[in-house]
Amino acid sequence: MLGHIARRLCHLHQISNGLRISNLFQLLFKETRRPVSTMSLWPFSAAMSRDFSQPNSSWSPEMRRVYDHYNALCEVETENGEKTRGPWRKLPSYNRSLKYATGGAYLSKLIQAKARLFTRSVKEQGAAFEYVVFVNKEEKSCVCVFQAGHLLEGAPGHVHGGAIATMIDTVTGTLAGYLSGPVMTANLNIDYRSPMPLGSVVLFHSNLDRIEGRKTFVTCKVTSTDESKLHTEATALFVSINVGHLFGARS
């Protein structure tokens, strides 16, 4: 999808003297809209990008254990002993989706090329947000394995409530986007139940509540890895948008 967009941009750039960027994208996305079901939601080039959701040396044994558990669910063995795709899928995570998508380098130069995804903006491994998301399309749910780094402190020794909210927005938005296509957060309601210690590993469980037109409602709860302790509960509302809206184009 973005590879096609980049080629269109190169062509349009040659005829865009005097056009505002918003007008340029309006022309672009008018011709590139497709139903979400026919679009690749993760059109990334592995050769050009680094997947930050891969295990690294900062991961604790517990983080690695839970990751291995869900990663194993991404592949199952048939009765014939063959390996096939399981109900879960691990999603990649980059420090900027736009820049590292196939054909996205050209777009990145036009739109704040130095921008970085907030949760992937710290270079030091393990210092902030260490996480990986697994999604189950059939169940319309996802699970995020999260390890809280030392730069996320709020109350001494515990994770800042804003950092927890950031991860809830990230996880619920990931599920909403996976099921509904491009979305933006419209509402986020959070109840903090118990403090989350720095360095701890927790699970973010997110499930689709319902879809009403352009609105996608999602629930989320944050628990210990054995699910015996509830840290946070939340509900979120996301609104589907036209991709061109992100670049200033209007329908």
Rank of each mutant, 00 (worst) to 15 (best):
Asn71Arg: 14
Asn23Val: 13
His158Ile: 01
Ser141Gly: 10
Lys137Ser: 13
Pro92Asp: 08
Ala127Cys: 09
Ile21Asp: 10
Asn189Leu: 12
Ser180His: 15
Lys137Gly: 08
Gly154Lys: 13
Lys114Glu: 09
Gly199Ala: 09
Tyr178Met: 05
Gly181Cys: 07
Pro87Glu: 12
Pro182Trp: 01
Glu79Tyr: 06
Ser180Asn: 15
Trp59Tyr: 02
His69Met: 09
Gly248Met: 05
Val202Trp: 05
Met1Ala: 01
Arg65Asp: 10
Gly213Ala: 02
Leu208Glu: 04
Gln147Lys: 04
Leu179Ala: 06
Arg33Trp: 03
Gly173Leu: 13
His231Leu: 02
Thr235Ala: 12
Gly161Thr: 10
Glu153Ile: 05
Lys215Tyr: 01
Val171Ile: 04
Gly161Trp: 07
Val135Pro: 00
Ser206Asp: 09
Val201Leu: 06
Arg96Glu: 11
Cys220Thr: 02
Ser40Met: 15
Leu117Arg: 06
Pro92Cys: 14
Arg116His: 12
Ser37Asp: 00
Pro61Met: 03
Lys109Ser: 02
His13Asp: 04
Ser40Thr: 14
Asp51Leu: 07
Arg89Val: 06
Phe52Ala: 11
Arg7His: 09
Met48Cys: 07
Gln54Ile: 05
Pro35Asp: 04
Tyr100Val: 11
Gly86Asn: 08
Ser40Tyr: 12
Leu237Ser: 06
Arg193Gly: 06
Val222Lys: 15
Phe25Ala: 12
His158Ser: 14
Gly213Phe: 01
Thr235Asp: 06
Leu152Cys: 11
Asn56Glu: 03
Gly149Glu: 07
Gly157Cys: 04
Leu208Val: 00
Leu203Tyr: 01
Met63Pro: 02
Leu27Asn: 06
Arg8Phe: 01
His13Gly: 06
Asn80Ile: 01
His160Arg: 03
Asn187Glu: 04
Asn17Lys: 14
Thr225Trp: 14
Gly162Thr: 11
Arg34Leu: 14
Phe247His: 00
Glu62Gln: 08
Ile111Trp: 06
Gly154Glu: 09
Asn95Gly: 11
Gly213Asp: 04
Glu77Lys: 08
Trp88Tyr: 05
Leu107Phe: 00
Ser240Glu: 13
Arg8Gly: 01
Ile211Arg: 07
Glu139Asn: 13
Pro55Val: 00
Ala148Asn: 00
Leu179Gln: 05
Pro197Ser: 02
Val183Thr: 11
Ser57Asn: 04
Leu2Gly: 08
Phe129Asn: 01
His150Phe: 14
His205Asp: 11
Val201Met: 15
Asn187Ser: 08
Lys109Ala: 08
Glu138Asp: 14
Ile5Ala: 13
Tyr94Ile: 00
Ala101Thr: 11
Thr174Arg: 06
Tyr100Met: 00
Met48Lys: 08
Ser251Arg: 12
Leu24Thr: 15
Ala249Asp: 05
His158Asn: 13
Ala128Asp: 14
Ser22Ile: 05
Leu98Ser: 09
